[in-house]
Amino acid sequence: MAKDTMTAEERIVASINLQPVDRVCCAPLIEQYAGQYAGITNREFLWDWDKCMAAIDKVKEAYPIWDSNAYMQQLRYGPVAKVVGSMRCKYPGVDLPDNAQYQMIEIEALTRDDYTLLAEKGFMEYRMTFLERAHNKTREEVLAGLQELARLRQAELEATQRRGQSATWASWAGLTPFDAFSMMRSIEKFFKDMYQIGSQLEQLMWTCNDAAVDAAVKGVEATGINRVFYGGVRCSGQFIAKKNFERFAWPYLKDIINRLAERNIVPILHFDSDWTENLEYFLELPQGKFVLELDSTTNIFKAYEILRGHCSIKGDVAPALFTVASPSEMDEYCKKLLTTFRNGEGLIYSSGCTLPMNARHENVKVFFDAVEKYGRYN
């Protein structure tokens, strides 16, 4: 059997740069499944940091070929998520049974009147107000939560390095303005804003880009890693028409990626939902300066056809393949994915979004085994 000739860090950097690698970079997003694999409840996994890290260690020990850690567990850690999580949430052991999966709850935490706050005091004050209301916390509690978030991120990066993995991204740079505002306003209220006060929104949404650039720069300075998570879901073609995409989403997305590229920061675009009809827009972005991460809803083979040689693509083994497919069906898809992309064409092999908590262990094994079977180039 051939052996690795690149480090985990060298492999992901080469993949992003569309350069040849010894084997495909293996970077699934693994969180709650790790607790199930280790035999602990989801309550233990999400509320006990040491047990959480030990569970992830066990998955890495079982599958050494998992070489890039693509999750930021501190964002889901109960004592932090309940204070500064991106949305209001229900958690096992508190709001749900001990082995239930956490749930994100959409609420209208900020009203249309609060856009005045955004205009007068900027995005960060707007965001802090959202966190206070979404989680029913004081400003002091939110600030303490953000400090704990930063501390745990450093601890997770150290654990990732100790396992011999690369960190897929250094830090969280934010969301597309469309997503950020719709989550804080709720998607129903924000869609009404889009139609009723669209001109006002167009101006306000630029403040989100400024905050994202600032967050990305600070994350890179703190970690020394120039890759950042940048999320988008609700502005894909699955949600809005192209005319609205071109007005309320694309200018901001294009601007943020260009600004990060100028700073040698690589955004990994964690873009859930179906982006198939939006794929050609990404050809307008700088070549080799971003990663498009897909969750299995977008047709990744269409993405390959359109974007081959332009950017690295991360994805995209579907949740259903982990949970209800047979091992042979899982193997068949993994083979198709890994053999469609050629060496130097930038595939980063991953689950479609998060590997499901209730994934079948035998199917997870097939997922990892496929790297040696179909993704080895040396």
Rank of each mutant, 00 (worst) to 15 (best):
E9F: 12
E10Y: 05
A14Q: 02
S15P: 01
I16S: 06
V21F: 13
R23P: 01
Y37K: 01
F45C: 06
K51Y: 06
I56V: 14
K60V: 12
E61W: 11
P64M: 13
I65F: 00
Y77L: 07
Y91H: 15
D95S: 08
L96D: 00
P97E: 14
N99K: 01
Q101P: 02
I105Q: 06
E106P: 05
E106V: 09
I107G: 02
R112N: 15
T116G: 08
A119M: 02
Y126Q: 02
R133W: 13
A134C: 10
N136E: 11
V142C: 13
L146F: 14
L149C: 03
A150Q: 10
A150P: 00
A150N: 07
R151Q: 11
L157V: 00
E158L: 10
E158S: 12
A159N: 09
A159R: 12
Q161E: 15
T168Q: 11
W169D: 11
S171W: 00
W172R: 11
T176Y: 01
P177D: 10
P177G: 08
P177A: 11
F178M: 01
D179M: 09
I187M: 14
D193Y: 04
M194S: 12
Q196H: 12
S199R: 14
A211L: 03
A211K: 00
A212P: 00
K218Q: 08
V220F: 05
A222L: 09
V228F: 10
G232W: 04
C235F: 14
F239E: 04
N244Y: 15
Y252N: 05
Y252W: 04
L253P: 01
D255G: 06
I256E: 01
I257H: 01
I257G: 03
R259Y: 12
N264G: 10
N264V: 03
W275F: 12
E284W: 13
Q287W: 04
K289M: 10
K289R: 15
E293D: 11
L294G: 00
D295L: 06
H310D: 11
A318P: 06
P327F: 13
Y333M: 08
C334P: 00
K335N: 08
N343F: 08
N343M: 10
N343D: 08
T354H: 14
P356S: 05
N358K: 14
A359E: 06
N363D: 06
F367T: 01
F367G: 01
A370L: 08
Y374R: 04
Y377P: 06
